[in-house]
Computed example of a mutant assay.
Amino acid sequence: MESKHEILNLFGENVRKYRRLLNISQEELAHKADLHRTYIGMIERAEKNITLVNIEKIANALEVKIEDLLKFSNGKE
């Protein structure tokens, strides 16, 4: 990741990864997290600097720990 906002890219990639593992759409994730679908898309594209409250909502909706959304992937998942 070469962006100066590397953490946003990492977070967005992990949200997308876990969402796909659950086989749900951005719209379904947004509904589960009580957020807007376009907001989820912006997060996955690293266009939004997300708040801690919304990080918790997304982690709960994806049924993962917050720290899982901040980990670098080894590419094996």
Results as ranks from 00 to 15, higher is better:
N49E: 11
N23H: 15
S73N: 14
N9Q: 15
F72C: 07
S73P: 07
N74V: 15
Y39N: 03
I58E: 00
T51C: 10
N9K: 13
I7K: 01
K57L: 12
A30F: 10
V15F: 01
S73C: 08
S25I: 10
E77T: 09
K17T: 06
R16Q: 08
N14P: 09
N49P: 04
I24N: 00
V53A: 05
D68F: 10
N74E: 13
R37K: 11
M42I: 08
E63V: 13
R45A: 12
E77I: 09
M42W: 06
G41P: 08
E56N: 14
K65P: 02
Y18H: 07
R45G: 02
E67A: 15
S73K: 09
F11C: 11
L70F: 13
H5Q: 07
H36E: 14
E56P: 02
G12M: 10
V53S: 04
K76D: 09
I43W: 01
E44S: 07
I50E: 01
M1D: 02
K48R: 12
S73E: 13
I58Q: 00
N14D: 06
Y18T: 04
T38K: 07
D68G: 05
L21W: 04
T38F: 08
N49M: 10
E44A: 10
Q26R: 15
G75T: 14
A61G: 03
I58L: 06
V64L: 09
E28Y: 05
E77V: 14
K71C: 14
K17L: 12
I40N: 01
K65Q: 11
R37C: 05
L21P: 01
S25G: 12
E47Y: 09
N23G: 13
I55L: 11
S3Q: 10
K4A: 13
F72H: 04
R16L: 13
I7R: 00
R16C: 04
R16E: 05
M42D: 07
S3F: 15
K17E: 07
I24L: 05
N49V: 11
E2F: 12
R45I: 05
L8S: 03
K32W: 09
E27Q: 13
V15K: 00
E27N: 11
N14L: 12
N54H: 15
I55S: 04
